[in-house]
Design a binder for these strands. Structure first.
Lengths: 340, 340
DNA sequence: CTGAAAGCGCTTACAG
DNA sequence: CTGAAAGCGCTTACAG
């Protein structure tokens, strides 16, 4: 920057003004500075800016994995909303591990982000403390906990599970199962577990057994997981009529396993998933599922963040907020009434 | 940090040493400092460290999209290799747009990364210049260009296309088509185009027409894209026997379209994809494809970067390098000899 | 093994 | 509309 100021014959302050708020500088001066910048190919150093302005324009996003179309969509939505405002995303993956999440939060805090977005409402004690003490906006996404650390943008996973169950029940099914992941010390898909809990509750409300809810192997779910879990379920409950999978990926895996076993879907077995991934619309038969607008979770979070960070006075801002983006049952071809 | 040094009764320099190279500090002193750090919940400021040490420990990764399992795997591999060395990834998406790539490279350069990983070998002139002038290691991935800007880790997309063609030809097919994306000013999947070029060349070498190579709509490919492209192809060349799709996602979309149209695969039509995504193994019939180890591209790139960045003396390092990770034909159920 | 001084490249907060 | 001074929180490069 001093090279630029020397070449343009102005002070560094003037160069700085041209970069941050050009309107403050006289046109002639501004043009001289711009020319110098281009001649030298000068790229301002945001590290230095961050240090002196006490704002990094970093926003941390912590997610279980990116190998999941829905989280990738959320990141895309978030990045889109923040793009124009010159924020840079700092992405971390926890791989569904709480200890890894703690490690990442600590490392991220050292980068002094202006805000943190985190796809989880369950943390270790140390993580929660760090988050609370960070003194920056925290947005928990993909769920709407009763008492968020700060802000929350998501939907009720529990109610998703209930809706799935009610759909299968309303079709006339009574022997109903579900496929999810196990919660272990280091693989913790709490949102999927919430869906399972809601599912289980709705079955019990209807006087139906929730004995066929399978929690097999660790998150994240995969096509293989769905195929294997379906096999296990059929072994345990051969007369099952309908299955809910906590993810479309598992659901499609289960569907493919049915095709290999010549089990007619939905004739012999109804299947409903969650997420409305692209594959759900394209697979044959097309998958019934519960849709959630993953990209919108990202873009709404981005908008919230801009409001919180760009407001001139800190006043008049909600200390906390909860935004429920909802979800929607999408009935396609894999669910129908049981054969009589 | 000065709070910590005050509480521990040492200079800031000593605190700094405890943080960066504890062995340099006497044990008693070190323990006092550590206690102070914990008491205050002190988290060092990497922004300040970056500025004074002239190293940010940021590594920029620029990819077309994250909504693609293969790129997500590469990021995972890269993040994994860098994790222990305390590097933070700065991820940008170009959405296959050259102008967006330029914008992102400029923005990233202001963050002063220690290296740049970029999944593209084709750039605007301005982008190439910025990359060259950056004075840091640049790794182009997902291809192995003849003359990389700096380093390259990938494989020959052109040869992938040739292998796909030779596989279909060796099965006895003569009426062969392909599905890819169009290159427009702002949607530029050059790697997919290379595969198509190699495919086309191999057909011509065998004296087979390459008239049924379809370049439809813009990247990234999707299940929908594959389904629609197959429909177009069948309209243009109803007697086609075999199809190569530049991505497994398109290939599976095409396969599903065949199921809807009751076209037997591979009886009536052979299909081969590229990428060996999870879905390729699970769909019914299972997809023949060409596998590339996406995660390994990431981890090898990470290792290369560590070698380049962590070496004590800058000497004895290759100025440039090209690593070809290769690829592999995976014959499953969607390709067979034509019906007679 | 420990510390005092200077500086990384910007912006803040004045002053004119 | 423009600039001189001080400082952001660390590390570098000495010195002892």
């Amino acid at each position: 920057m001093s090279d630029v100021s020397r070449l343009a014959g102005v002070s560094k302050m003037t160069v700085s003004r041209v970069l941050t708020d050009p309107a403050l500088v006289a046109e002639a001066t501004r043009n001289r500075v711009m020319t110098a910048i281009e001649q030298l190919g000068y790229v301002p150093d945001r590290t230095a800016r961050s240090l002196s302005s006490r704002r990094t324009n970093f926003i941390t996003a912590i997610l279980p994995t990116l190998t999941n179309a829905n989280f990738a969509d959320t990141v895309q939505g978030l990045a889109g909303a923040l793009r124009t405002a010159d924020y840079q995303l700092l992405i971390g993956y926890t791989m569904y591990s709480l200890s890894e999440e703690e490690r990442i939060v600590r490392a991220m805090l050292a980068r002094r982000p202006d805000a943190i977005v985190i796809a989880s409402a369950v943390h270790t004690k140390a993580t929660s403390e760090m988050l609370l003490r960070a003194g920056i906006p925290i947005v928990e996404i993909w769920d709407v906990p009763e008492h968020p650390v700060d802000h929350a943008v998501g939907f009720s996973n529990y109610e998703v599970g209930r809706l799935a169950a009610r759909h299968l029940i309303s079709l006339g099914h009574r022997r109903i199962g579900a496929i999810g992941s196990a919660i272990t010390s280091d693989a913790t898909d709490f949102r999927g577990e919430s869906r399972l809990q809601g599912f289980s509750a709705a079955l019990r409300e209807a006087g139906i057994s929730d004995g066929s809810i399978l929690r097999q192997s660790a998150a994240p779910s995969s096509y293989d997981h769905g195929a294997e879990a379906l096999s296990t379920l059929l072994r345990q409950a051969p007369d099952i009529e309908a299955v809910f999978a906590v993810s479309d990926i598992s659901a499609v895996g289960a569907l493919m396993e049915c095709q290999r076993r010549k089990i007619a879907v939905p004739g012999d077995l109804s299947i409903i998933g969650f997420g409305d991934f692209d594959i759900a619309r394209q697979c044959v038969p097309a998958l019934s599922t519960i849709r959630v607008d993953a990209e919108m979770i990202g873009s709404k979070t981005g908008e919230l963040l801009l409001t919180l960070l760009e407001s001139d006075d800190g006043a008049a801002l909600p200390a906390q907020s909860r935004l429920d983006v909802g979800f929607e049952l999408v009935t396609r071809e894999t669910t129908s009434a049981p054969k009589i």
